[in-house]
């Protein structure tokens, strides 16, 4: 396994940082790899541009930043516009197809749309949109095991929301199958 670099971008409050935390914890604690998660945000608590990043590696991570991403998860148009340029030429793009509409990347990029926010709303709470995306990411990118991701989510969300989050994860995970 090579080092894998994931960038997540969106607005503050969308769970951008929590998503990176879930991926990083799944890889590091449950998949027993090494993971380094860093974050960047503006001074606003809500609504400002926000991004996070995870580097997953079989060995100790030296360079913790992502300026050449294997995966970009875009939860907003602004996040897409800002970071599409750092995605590798053959990288994997995952985006919320209701929130990112203006696409401009080359066809070599593996483009994976999912209406994550709409799926979450259908589940009853749009706050789990990021977890829908996590499920989708797990299925598409295959960088972290599904067991590790599920455990990481369970450990990271309040217990009364575990069930909702698990359903959201499964929706996202199975979305790709349902497409076929």
């Amino acid at each position: 396994m090579k080092e894998q670099k994931i960038k997540i971008s969106g607005f503050g409050g969308q769970g951008v940082i929590l998503s990176a935390y879930i991926i990083g914890k799944a890889a590091s604690i449950y998949d027993k790899k090494n993971a380094s998660m860093t974050q960047a945000y503006g001074p606003e608590a809500r609504g400002g541009a926000c991004s996070s990043q995870v580097v997953i590696s079989p060995k100790e991570v030296d360079y913790p930043l992502v300026d050449n991403a294997d995966v970009l998860i875009a939860l907003s148009q602004e996040g897409y516009d800002k970071f599409i340029s750092i995605l590798k030429k053959d990288g994997i793009l995952l985006y919320d197809s209701d929130l990112v509409e203006n696409l401009k990347h080359s066809s070599k990029i593996k483009s994976n749309p999912i209406p994550a926010t709409r799926v979450a709303e259908e589940l009853g709470n749009k706050i789990v949109a990021n977890v829908v995306m996590m499920g989708f990411f797990t299925a598409v990118a295959k960088m972290v095991s599904i067991e590790a991701m599920k455990q990481s989510i369970q450990e990271s969300v309040p217990s009364k929301y575990t069930e909702l989050n698990m359903r959201a994860f499964d929706k996202g995970y199975n979305y790709i199958k349902n497409l076929k």
């Binding site: 990083g24 914890k25 590091s28 380094s36 860093t38 991570v61």
Partner: peptide, 9 residues
Amino acid sequence: AIVGHMTEK
């Protein structure tokens, strides 16, 4: 700020 806000094992 990077190390302070970085999350790792």
